[in-house]
Each structure stands twice: as C-alpha cells, then as structure tokens.
C-alpha cells in the first residue's frame, strides 16, 4: 500500500504558486486575444464579400479541425522556419492557443448574430440605420446576451488547454509540478494536488456559468 505524504509539497509552494500565476495570466491573454480573433472570424464569415467569407471559414476550420497539441508544436517548430521569425515558447503557445480558441469563439459569435430575427435588422434599416449602426445598436446587444454562456464555457476549456504549453517548456502549473515531482520523487502527490488546484478554480466558475444560463433563460 502506497504511503501518501502531501506534507512534502509544502516546500514547493512557491514553485506551484509561480506556475499557477503563469497559468492564470496565460489564460487571460489567450481569452482576450482569442475573442479578438473570434470577432474577426465571425464578422469575416458573415461578410458580404465571398473572398473574405472564404478566408474566415478557412481559418476557422483549420484551427477547429486540428488538435491543439499539434498546433502548439507546429507553431513553435515549423512556423519559425516557414515565416523566418524566431518565437519564444511563450509567444508561440500564446499565438497557437489564441487562434485555436478564436476559431471556436468565431462560431459562437457567428451563431449568436444569426440567431437574431431578421426583422430586427430590417426594423433598424427601415429607420435609416446603416448596417453597421443596426449591428451595434440592435443586433449585437441582443446577440451578446445569448453568446455569453457559450463564450464562458469555451473560456473554461481554454483555461484547461493552457496545461499543454508545458510541452514547450512554458513554466505553467503543470510544468512546475513536473519539476517538483522529479525533485521530490513524489509524482502521485504532486499531480493529484495539481488536479485539485485546477478543479478548485474551475468548479466555482462552472457553477457561475450555469447560474448565468438560468438567468438568461428567465429573461428571454
């Protein structure tokens, strides 16, 4: 029978905290950047111009239909050779994760926009609004409300996806725990603690999202 000893992890607390900081900071960056990419992808895929639509859909499908682990490795090893630019592991993984998340955000945003009844933008147009005005004033305020639960869900997935950046030696929570595990010869305790740490952050967030979904259902 294995003798658990979680006490030994205490001496690695600063390492874990450091890793957790990187993980949370990374999540913030890729969620924000991902939303920016997502907006471009969504409006691109709804564009009046076929070339723009095609470009946006190619971007969305390319990132939705390849594994994020492959993208991370490709961005770090292949892209610098193709593009001729050196990238740090942090830049490469931030870019890959943002684009990956952005492709999913795109679909959520696009779905939210086209879910709004066509009569709404027609009523805006009939008042004399330009398509941009009716998008900003009429369609988006209604669409965003519908998108928020799905966007939150995707962001939670993004948080978990940051654990993959350890393969490029970005010092996130998983990477630091590998260091701790090797140092302490206690991988079972270390990885259990890491799993608990992720859950401790995500379970309250998930509850929050579920509450938001309920409130949304009531208000519609």
């Amino acid at each position: 029978m294995y003798q658990w000893d979680f006490g030994i992890l205490w001496s690695y607390r600063w390492l874990f905290l450091n890793g957790l900081g990187v993980t949370v900071g990374f999540t913030v960056v890729i969620v924000v950047l991902g939303l920016v990419f997502g907006l471009f992808g969504a409006f691109g895929s709804l564009s009046r111009f076929k070339a723009v639509r095609l470009l946006a859909l190619t971007f969305i499908e390319a990132f939705r239909c390849t594994p994020i682990l492959v993208q991370l490795i490709w961005f770090y090893y292949a892209l610098p050779i193709l593009a001729g630019v050196e990238m740090t592991p942090i830049t490469a993984s931030a870019l890959a994760l943002s684009l990956y998340g952005g492709s999913f955000y795109s679909e959520i945003i696009r779905g939210g926009i086209i879910s709004i009844d066509k009569g709404q933008s027609e009523a805006g147009a009939a008042l004399g609004m330009t398509p941009g005005q009716s998008m900003r004033r009429i369609v988006l305020p209604q669409a965003i409300k519908r998108m928020i639960p799905a966007l939150m869900n995707q962001s939670i997935i993004q948080f978990k996806n940051t654990s993959l950046v350890s393969v490029l030696a970005v010092p996130d929570l998983v990477y630091q725990s590998q260091v701790a595990a090797h140092d302490s010869y206690r991988p079972l305790e270390t990885y259990t603690a890491v799993a608990v740490a992720y859950a401790a952050i995500l379970i309250p967030l998930t509850i929050l999202v579920r509450r938001g979904e309920k409130r949304l259902a009531v208000s519609e």
């Binding site: 009844d117 009569g119 709404q120 027609e122 009523a123 147009a125 009939a126 008042l127 004399g128 009429i138 305020p141 209604q142 409300k145």
Partner: peptide
C-alpha cells in the same frame, strides 16, 4: 430610408 417610415406585420420592436 429616413424619409420612409415602415410598420411590420410582426412589429419588430427592439426587445432590449
């Protein structure tokens, strides 16, 4: 279109 007002069958009021 600012010179032509329109009223729709399904009202199309802005619900928000």
């Amino acid at each position: 279109r600012t010179t032509t007002g329109m009223v729709f069958q399904h009202f199309n009021l802005f619900p928000h």
